[in-house]
């Protein structure tokens, strides 16, 4: 876990900082003299050898960092310092801290919608396999799975907001304020993004759940459950689905982690100021410290969710429990 984080930071740092961009040049301005460039380079700490740059980066994460302390206006970056965006003149951590809740709400709401529809749809399809309910669900799932998210998003905006005017235009500030400040506005803004994310993911979970339930249907212990005289609903949910839950949990954990890194397209379409928008801006502006920070945070989510999923296995399957 710690080793993995270390490797991740190493990879992210060197991958982006050894790119052939010169951040010193980007922040140099119009009238750029070699002296000014050299000065900038020193301020950014880019005059150090790469290894020292990395150490300064890591030290910054734990103890904070002061850029060019020998200069008249040193830049202070506080304790979990992932770097300083010289383009935005803000600490990367501050930028991420502002964007992360938006993505968190987006992911959380989307997850609740998609897991509900996905699992329920999958169970229904499995129970009605081969019949029209199954076929309809599978066809819808195939469409949802194949549709690009920007297309679904634009369709929803066009019909729900522009044509039918059921919802007002999305409000980024309402989302940033969180669900408790102005719940109505918050939900009005989030419901379409949630739907987009849910449609994309639920499609996959319908298929996954259906296959898992159908697979465990053939197991001996499901036959035992029927032989006990349990009603079919109990057999399906408590016995068949329970046994096939592990891959669903795995997939859900990784999908959540992936989304926490930013649903780039969905966020862009609905102009939500989340991690996705942040990373797009960072990339288009060559904002290297920000890119490094965003990628690192996204990577941490993936590692953390993997750990959580592993812990959940033990909770789900007594055979995995140790001791």
């Amino acid at each position: 876990m710690v080793g993995l984080l270390f490797l991740l930071s190493l990879a992210v740092f060197f991958l982006f900082n050894l790119l052939p961009f010169d951040p010193a040049r980007l922040t140099c301005g119009k009238v750029c003299t070699p002296q000014l460039l050299e000065q900038n380079r020193h301020r950014l700490g880019l005059d150090l050898p790469p290894w020292d740059q990395y150490l300064a980066f890591v030290r910054g994460i734990f103890f904070g960092r002061i850029y060019a302390p020998d200069q008249p206006f040193p830049i202070v970056c506080h304790a979990p310092c992932l770097g300083y965006s010289f383009l935005r003149h803000a600490e990367v951590t501050t930028l991420i801290a502002r964007a992360l809740p938006v993505t968190l709400w987006l992911t959380l709401g989307g997850f609740i919608v998609w897991i509900t529809f996905g699992v329920v749809g999958g169970i229904v399809a499995a129970l009605r396999r081969g019949r029209w309910q199954d076929r309809v669900l599978m066809t819808v799932a195939l469409f949802g799975y194949s549709m690009p998210s920007f297309f679904i998003g634009l369709l929803l905006i066009f019909f729900v907001i522009l044509q039918l005017q059921w919802l007002p235009f999305p409000s980024a500030s309402a989302v940033q304020a969180g669900p408790f400040a102005n719940p109505v506005k918050f939900f009005q803004t989030m419901i379409l993004p949630w739907l987009v994310i849910a449609i994309l993911n639920a499609a996959f979970y319908v298929r996954l759940t259906r296959n898992q339930v159908l697979e465990t249907f053939g197991e001996d212990y499901v036959r035992t459950a029927r032989a006990k005289g349990l009603p079919e609903r109990t057999v399906v949910v408590k016995h068949a689905l329970r046994a096939g839950l592990t891959p669903i949990v795995t997939a859900a954990g990784l999908d959540i982690a992936y989304l926490m890194g930013g649903a780039i397209i969905t966020e862009s379409i609905f102009s939500l100021p989340g991690m996705g928008s942040l990373s797009v801006n960072a990339v288009t502006n060559y904002d290297l410290p920000l890119i490094t920070g965003v990628v690192l945070v996204a990577g941490i989510f993936i590692i953390a969710m993997n750990l959580i999923v592993d812990l959940l296995y033990g909770f789900l399957d007594p055979r995995v429990r140790i001791g």
């Binding site: 212990y221 036959r223 006990k228 005289g229 079919e232 329970r242 046994a243 007594p318």
Partner: peptide, 27 residues
């Protein structure tokens, strides 16, 4: 009908299966 049959299974007729390894729910 199924509900009547379910009421009989496990109460009037019970069954033991071939493979006890896989016939009990592992979870």
């Amino acid at each position: 009908p199924m509900p009547d049959l379910q009421a009989i299974r496990g109460s009037q007729i019970a069954m033991i299966f071939q493979d006890p390894m896989s016939s009990l729910h592992p979870f």
